[in-house]
Design a protein around this nucleic acid. Structure first.
Lengths: 358, 358
DNA sequence: TTGTAGGCGTTATCAC
DNA sequence: GTGATAACGCCTACAA
C-alpha cells in the first residue's frame, strides 16, 4: 500500500539511484530532475522505509534507555529529559525497564547488539567488566546517567557536593548531631549516588571538626518504609540526632513518618533534609537538594547523539548542577517544647496529615 | 563482526535455507542436520539479525506507546505494566512522550506507518477521525488505554463506578453537601476520565435524592495548584460543601492544601476523596479510589500482542477493577470544633506538615 | 529433507 | 548527472 522508491522512480522517469540521491540530497543531481522527483515524492506521499534504510546502512536509528525502577520519580524525570531531545532527532527511544539484576543482564545482552540499537543510555547502574567488554566490542555508543565508570562518558549530579550542601545548611543552623540515612544499592546495580552523598556529609562534618559516626549512619534498601525504620532506630539512640540527612526525598518521607510516630516536632526538635526535590517535596515543605533531573536526561541524550553522529571524545564526564532548597523541615536545633504542648500537638498533627495505612 | 546466517550455513555445511528453517523451527528438517546447525549457531553465538528479519517479514517487531504527560505517576504505572509484559515477548517498546497536542499529531503521524511499529498503545488520548482513518488504512494494531472509542479496543477503569463509589462512601458517612473537582482535558487530548468520574458522582447523588449543582462542580486544568484554587472557591461559598471528591489524587492534594490554608480541619470539618491511589495517597492517609494501574497496562499490552499475533476481534473493551480505600481524610460531617481548639490546631498542623513553598 | 533463487527497500559503487 | 547492479540479512516458494 505504501509507495516505494521504485514507484517514485517510475513516475518521475528516473532510476532508483537518482531518487535515492534526491532523498539524501546529494549535490550531484540536476535541478530539473530533482524537482521532478520531489514532485513525485509529494504526489505519492512517499517516505523512505526505515526498514530498508536500516538494513542497508546497518544502523537501527534507535537508541535504548535502560532504566532500573521506573517507579522512581527521579528516574522518570530523567527519562522525560531524554525523550525531549530524542523527539527532535529521528531516533526511536526504546525503553527497557528493570526490576532485578538478572533483568539488567538480560537487557544488556539484548541491547548490546549492533542490530538492536545504535547506542544506549544506562540510568543509575554501572556495567560489569564483562558487559563493558561486550559494549566495546560492538562499538556501540553508551552514556551513563546517574552513574560513573572510568571508561565511559557519563552525566551525574555532584553527589558529594550535594551531601556537603545539606550538611553545611544544618551546621549553619547550629546542628551538631547530624545523622545520615542512605540507600543500599539494590539488586547489585552498583549505584554510587547514595554512598557519595554520605561521603559529602562526612567531609563537611569533618571540615567542621565533627565526625559522622557509624552510629549515626543508617543504610538500608530504598523506599519509605525502610527509611522509617532506620529513622526510628536513630531517634531511639541515647543521644539522638537533631538532624537527619537522607539520600532521597522518599527516604525523607520515612524519616518524617518516624518523627510523627514518636511525637517529635519537625523542625522544632528534628530537622530533616531530603535529596532530589521531587514534586512531593514541595508539597510537604521538605528541605532538600535539588538536582536538575530533567536536564540531566537531556544532557545525556545530547552526548549520545553527538557520539553517534560524530565520534567525539568517547570520554567525558558532565556534572549536573545542584542546589539546596530550604523549606519547612529544617531549622535551628533544640527548640523542644513543653510536654503539654507536645501532647496537644500530636492530636492535631494526626488530624491534619492523617495516618498512613500500613 | 557478528555472525550471519551464511556463516552458520558454511560451518554446518548446509544452505542458508536450511539454517533459516532451523531458526524458525520448521518441522521439515532432519534431526541430524538440525543438531549440526544448532551447534554451529551455538559456536558462533549467532542470533538472527532483526534488521534482516524485519525487512523480510515486513514486521518491525516493535510497538509504540504514546504517553501524554509522562509526569503523571498514574501514567508511569501503566507504562510499567506494559513494559512488564513486553519484556517477555520480543517486541521493542518505543516510547513517545507528549506534552502538547501538536506533539500528539506529530507522534501519531510518525507512529502510524507500517515500517515504524507493528502496533501501538495510546494512553489517555483518543485519536481524531482522520487519525483513526489513517490507522485503519495501515492496518496497524491499536489499543486505547484509559480512553475509549467505539471502533477501537480499549482498557479503561470504570470511572463512572469510581465516582459512584466515592459518593456512596461520603453519603454513607452522612454527607449531604458533596462537591466535585474535575480535570479539564488538557491540550485537546479528549481524555474522558475526569468527566466520567464526575458523572458517577452525579448519578449516585441523584439516586439518593440529591443533585450535583453547577455551583458544586469545579473543573480546571490538572495539577495541584489549580485544584487548590478551585477548592478555595468551593469553600468560600455561602454554604460550603462538607466533602469534596477530586478526579485525581493530585487534585486532592490541592484541596487539602486549601483546607489547611483556610484552617479547616480534615476530616472533622471537611472530607476529601481522591482518585488513583498513588503512593503519596498512602503517605498522607488520603481516602481515594484505587485503580489497578499497573495491571491495566499489562492488560492493554496483552490485548495488543494478541491482536498482533492472531487477529482476534478487533473490538473489545476491558474494564479495570476499582475499589475505595478509606483512610484518614474522610469521616462524618459536622464535627467542627470550638474556635479555641481550632486555633491551636492550626499551629501544630503547620509544624507537622510544613507549608508548601509557593 | 534440502538447495536455489527471488524478493523485501534502501544505499553505494561502479560505469557511462 | 544518471543508470545498472551488487550488497545488506533474512524468509520462503519452488525445485530437486
Amino acid at each position: 500500500l505504501a509507495a516505494t522508491i521504485h514507484d517514485v522512480a517510475r513516475i518521475s522517469r528516473v532510476s532508483i539511484g537518482t531518487v535515492s540521491r534526491v532523498i539524501n540530497n546529494s549535490p550531484r543531481v540536476d535541478p530539473g530532475t530533482r524537482a521532478r522527483v520531489l514532485r513525485a515524492i509529494e504526489d505519492l506521499d512517499f517516505r523512505p522505509s526505515r526498514l530498508g534504510r536500516r538494513l542497508s546502512t546497518g544502523k537501527t536509528h534507535s537508541i535504548a534507555v535502560v532504566v532500573p525502577f521506573l517507579t522512581r520519580e527521579s528516574v522518570v524525570e530523567r527519562l522525560r529529559g531524554i525523550a525531549g531531545v530524542l523527539v527532535s532527532t529521528d531516533y526511536d527511544l526504546v525503553v527497557f525497564n528493570l526490576e532485578t539484576r538478572e533483568q539488567l543482564d538480560h537487557a544488556l545482552a539484548q541491547v548490546v547488539r549492533r542490530d538492536r540499537v545504535d547506542g544506549f543510555i544506562l540510568i543509575g547502574s554501572t556495567p560489569s567488566d564483562d558487559e563493558l567488554a561486550a559494549i566495546e566490542k560492538t562499538g556501540q555508543a553508551c552514556v551513563l546517567l546517574d552513574a560513573r565508570h572510568p571508561r565511559l562518558p557519563s552525566v551525574a549530579g555532584n553527589d558529594v557536593k550535594g551531601g556537603r550542601l545539606a550538611a553545611r545548611h544544618l551546621l549553619g543552623l547550629g546542628h551538631r548531631r547530624i545523622a545520615f540515612i542512605g540507600e543500599e544499592p539494590r539488586e547489585a546495580f552498583n549505584t554510587p549516588a547514595s554512598r557519595l552523598r554520605g561521603r559529602g556529609v562526612r567531609l563537611e562534618l569533618r571540615a567542621n571538626g565533627l565526625e559522622l559516626t557509624p552510629e549515626y549512619t543508617a543504610v538500608g534498601e530504598q523506599g519509605r518504609g525502610r527509611a522509617r525504620e532506620l529513622a526510628l532506630g536513630l531517634l531511639a539512640l541515647p543521644e539522638p540526632p537533631t538532624a537527619i540527612i537522607c539520600a532521597s526525598d522518599i527516604q525523607a518521607l520515612g524519616a518524617l513518618e518516624a518523627a510523627r510516630e514518636l511525637d517529635i516536632a519537625v523542625p522544632a526538635e528534628l530537622s530533616v533534609v531530603g535529596y532530589d526535590d521531587l514534586e512531593i517535596a514541595g508539597h510537604l515543605g521538605l528541605t532538600t537538594i535539588r538536582q536538575a533531573l530533567f536536564e540531566s536526561g537531556m544532557q545525556a541524550a545530547r552526548m549520545l547523539v553527538a557520539q553517534l553522529s560524530g565520534g567525539p571524545p568517547r570520554q567525558s564526564v558532565a556534572l549536573i548542577d545542584i542546589m539546596l532548597v530550604a523549606r519547612a523541615t529544617s531549622g535551628p536545633p533544640g527548640r523542644a517544647q513543653a510536654r503539654s504542648r507536645r501532647t496537644t500537638s500530636r492530636k492535631c498533627r494526626r488530624a491534619a496529615s492523617g495516618a498512613a495505612d500500613r
